[in-house]
Design a binder for these strands. Sequence first.
RNA 1: GUCUUGGUAGCUCAGCUGGAUAGAGCAACUGCCUUCUAAGCAGUAGGCCAUUGGUUCGAAUCCAAUCCAGGACACCA
Length: 642
Amino acid sequence: MSVVQSIRTAAVAALKSLYDQQVTESDIAINITKPEFEGEYTIVVFSFTKFSRQKPEETAQRIGEYLVSHNPELIARFNVVKGFLNLSINDAYWTKFLQTYYGDVNIGIQPANGKRIMVEYSSPNTNKPLHLGHLRNNFLGYSIAEIMKANGFDVVKANLVNDRGIHICKSMLAWQLFAHGDTPQSSGIKGDHLVGDYYVKFESVVKEQAEPIIDRVLENDFADFDGADVEKIGKLVTALHKPEVKEDKEKTGKIMDDIKEMSRNKTEIMQQAKIMLQQWEAGNHEVRELWATMNSWVYEGFDQTYKRLGIDFDKMYYESETYLLGKDLVAEGLEKGVLFRKEDNSVWIDLTADGLDQKLLLRGDGTSVYMTQDLGTARLKYQDYHMDQSVYVVADEQNYHFKVLQLILSKLGEPSAPGILHLSYGMVELPHGRMKSREGTVVDADDMITEMVQTAEEKTKESGKNLDAFSEDELHELYDTVGMGGLKFFLLRVDPKKKMIFDPKESIDLHGFTATFIQYAHARIKSIIREVGPVADLAGFIYTGELLPLEKELIILNEQFPGILAEAYRELSPSVIASYIFQLAQLFNSFYGEKVDGVPTYSILRAATEEKKKLRLQIIMMTAHTIAQGMKLLGIKVPERM
RNA sequence: GUCUUGGUAGCUCAGCUGGAUAGAGCAACUGCCUUCUAAGCAGUAGGCCAUUGGUUCGAAUCCAAUCCAGGACACCA
């Protein structure tokens, strides 16, 4: 039981006994005592004055006296400032805690709770390589899955690969037209990048081909369009010439975007891509063959990147295998009367009663849309794993989609519905704004990784450390640990819910609130432990003297780790752990560096007594374990030395 | 237009189930390597917590309105 929990229990008993009040534990506000006051934890008693019918000071005094006399093993002293009851925990409590846990490398890990959670993350498209945005998704998904495991859940990490659709056909077509048979092997280009290059090529051809069409449109020549499109594009052009639109740059831009989009759709190459998609859906052998080949290139590339990122999956889903699944659900929904069919044969669900719109589930031609696929996949996942919760790590631009997904699933009576949880995270932006592929500002994931590891190498060499003791392999591992750690920490240290600014200059920094800082603290501890060597009787040792301030603070902070772990799960936020571990590393560094008149206060090797040496060893060992454990939950390695 | 998220130091972010004088890191400025790794430590400076009102013994935190910024509201995924 945690200290805070023990205090709560004791306080509830005190209130019952003193005032005959049954207060729930969660109603007791316990804070960490401000450094300027004596004590470690503080009970805020203002709210108790309602039933104590005494001044806050008197109330606090009475509770304090009760707590000390009834819980002497826990609380040694107290002092009262206004309505704040500051408690000093017994040093013996801390040293006992230390003795129990200092050697526990699984500190904070909870036993299995019998619940299963699926975490779907990464979910890439196979038409281009991963970029910075995917990195946040991947790190977040991996970390949250690890955090859930540590909290006792049985976690299934899933990856739903978007391996079919018009975007894939674009890459395929451009490859057919322009690649002259190039392969990753022949070109020496990583598979996902090669395919991505042809996607870019496709887009540039579209742009080229669309220009004359747009020119004609702007001269009121709509010969490129047919059917209802003629009227639609005509309206857009008319709107463009309205005086109130002419003055409004934003409106003009929007209309021009629509015109461009329609024109792009009429280009020859786009038409070809659409034909290819139809051929794919019809199972055309040649198209399927090409598709399989190019996807295999991409997977090879992704596998390499995933490996470097250190992330993994228990289950792969492929959209090519799941995109038809939702249709059964739609049929059942029609039968149940939850869905309805319109004149054009399209199928809809009416969510207006829930404050939302009508939502399309099947097109008039019977083909499914994004939502239909997700409905089907949700059922499939549930059939496969019967999980209690199904988490989707997806950017916040899809908040509406997941709200609707869950609502429809529950209206269809799907057992998976209550467990749907959208872990919505903010987009990654650059200092100048959002990444835009059209403007070429997308930061490539592989480039990013390479740059971080390179920076780690440069900084290590610049540091002037003696690297002779490291083998070549060890050095490379260190660069990787520091570089990748830096990247992961930078993306995980901010609250996932919030959008974040990614400043490349800041991201390669190795000082301050960074993984490197924490890794360094860990390496320092390990270095001391190596230096000291084995110590007799450490396991059975309990320090009985008085604790110095930073000795005590370190134990206290370590003791909070399980609570932090639970909070990280509750908030679905690895950043909680990142902040905590940083704070712990900071505190250790102060402990390590404090000197009075040039003499280190907390020296381990040269501790004044053997008892102090053992105490401090226990403290730093526990600290190293907590740091390593916390970093592991973020997917970050810690070095033994650096 | 409707819904939604955010606005805290020059910059990037904590703090938000209401509690004591609002915290880190970066950047700036001072000091500290003959003693366990200076990728470090100690310190200085930097704030009308977007604005206005309300609830309360007490508000950065809760409520309302306003301003500013992002996102969503597709027979795209």
